[in-house]
Nucleic acid binder design. Structure first.
Lengths: 114, 114
DNA sequence: CTGCCATGTAAGCAACTCCTTATGTAAGTT
DNA sequence: AACTTACATAAGGAGTTGCTTACATGGCAG
């Protein structure tokens, strides 16, 4: 039993593969069919299909069927979560806002003691 | 033969594990020894040790040995690369800088044709 | 209906991940 | 010296990933 991994882990895992990142890069220029996405790669179609499934599970693409073509479109919402996590741990927020917070508290105490 | 994965893939893969993300979160409050990092988790010490090695290979932590203690410190540089990739694919940059790029290329061509 | 085309699914395999227990290794303690 | 502490590494196993080939599905063209 696997015990489904959380969404953030799914997204990070999806992005850990260069082929999948290349697929996403490609989709940045607009949606494409599975065949178009497979073309630039040396790997087989089923392999690409499996990559697409991983990306879909991570919420990074959306697949809509029209006739025998599957259209893939980029979805960037999961990247917002990733971005939030990353920024939180880069200290863009922190070491600045935490210090600011502390500074404010100091000033408050000082003002209180006057 | 594995064929060493690129650094960005290493970082994404390292971040795909909740335990490792928790370790990084913990390190945000300052450096810690391997033992301190292992304590909050139910898994064995060797398991934590292996997680630390993955994080080290990804460049996300630095381990320095002093006596029999291994001190782990957070390194955020790899997160900058991740952040750049993410932002690039979120369309924060894009729709602005790609257009600028294209515009520059147009101007260049025009200048060449003169 | 028959056959092609685009794609997904199934089965199988090598390689990797993540955990375990057992065994180093190096520094401090008695 | 023997013992403990703090960690790493080794070996092994269950589960997952990423690829392959072979087959199934479903729309379309003759």
């Amino acid at each position: 039993m696997a015990g489904a991994p959380d969404q953030l882990s799914l997204v990070f895992a999806a992005l850990a593969d260069p082929t999948r990142r290349a697929i996403l890069s490609r989709l940045r220029q607009g949606s494409a069919t599975a065949g178009e996405l497979a073309e630039p790669f040396q790997i087989s179609r089923p392999a690409v299909s499996q990559h697409l499934r991983v990306l879909e599970k991570a919420g990074l693409i959306e697949r809509t069927a029209s006739a025998q073509w599957r259209n893939c479109t980029l979805r960037t919402e999961p990247l917002d979560d990733v971005s939030a996590w990353i920024d939180h741990h880069r200290g863009l927020w922190n070491e600045r806002f935490d210090l600011l917070d502390e500074r404010l508290r100091e000033l408050k105490e000082k003002a209180g003691n006057d």
